[in-house]
């Protein structure tokens, strides 16, 4: 393995992904991540000079909708996914400390 993932990196990625990992999970994730980076290094060996960066896998552009309202009241379906609800909204833990 050419790429070594540090404890700090795995901690940081965990925070970004909002994941709490156990020690053995961290070890496994470190190994997986270093293998992924090794694979990317392999791809980087390819000479891409003069090749346009690809922004999409399909050779398609300009797919648009016209600005017309066709959706009707979607609250019932939307709220089916709410673990808790109140006054027609999703109830979540308080987001701002005072």
């Amino acid at each position: 393995m050419a790429n070594i993932i540090s404890d700090d990196t795995i901690e940081y990625v965990g925070i970004l992904a909002k994941l709490e990992l156990k020690e053995e999970e961290k070890a496994r994730a470190k190994k997986d991540m270093s293998e992924m980076l090794d694979y990317i290094d392999k791809l980087n060996e390819l000479d891409t000079d003069g090749v346009e960066p690809m922004s999409h896998i399909f050779p398609v552009s300009n797919v648009f909708r016209e600005d017309i309202v066709t959706n009707t009241d979607g609250s019932k379906d939307t709220l089916l996914n709410a673990p808790k609800q109140k006054d027609g909204g999703f109830m979540v833990p308080k987001t701002i400390g005072s």
Partner: peptide, 19 residues
């Protein structure tokens, strides 16, 4: 294609895309 109108009852202007 959900409406952007201001002041609708909560979550009435929603669909699978915007949620």
């Amino acid at each position: 294609s959900c409406s952007t109108a201001f002041g609708g009852a909560p979550n009435t202007h929603t669909c699978p895309v915007c949620t």
